[in-house]
């Protein structure tokens, strides 16, 4: 049994940081294109619905969302410590809970597609 859960917490943080570093700019750019009236194929209702209807499409979307949320939650926890918030246990529970609840919500909605 591991004596510390730090490797898991940090491993997910690093995975999330890597995934978001590689694809987040492209994802945001896709939505910006749509906002300026040049909707990319994948963002039309039919295509996105068809994508999210497949099991691997759900897995990709949920994986990106969970890792991004976990990455943000962990970094926010560290940053709050850096700016003088010393209630780490409370902060940790709060940020990871938001990440977990939002991920479960994403899974719930994906399963309804």
């Amino acid at each position: 049994m591991a004596k510390s859960n730090k490797p898991v917490v940090w491993g997910l943080f690093a995975a999330g940081g890597t995934v978001t570093a590689f694809i987040m700019p492209a994802l945001v750019l896709l939505v910006l294109l749509a906002a300026f009236g040049r909707v990319p194929d994948i963002l039309t209702y039919e295509k996105l619905h068809a994508f999210a209807a497949q099991w691997w499409g759900k897995a990709v979307l949920l994986g990106i969302i969970f890792l991004a949320l976990w990455h943000a939650a962990h970094r926010l926890r560290i940053t709050l410590h850096d700016v003088g918030v010393r209630a780490d246990a409370t902060v940790a529970v709060a940020v990871y809970a938001v990440a977990a609840v939002a991920s479960v919500a994403a899974a719930f909605y994906l399963l309804r597609i």
């Binding site: 969302i65 991004a68 943000a72 940053t79």
Partner: peptide
């Protein structure tokens, strides 16, 4: 603080 926008964007995706 880039984590704030990444977290916010992930919530928008949800």
């Amino acid at each position: 603080v880039t984590c704030l926008s990444i977290g916010a964007y992930a919530l928008v995706l949800v």
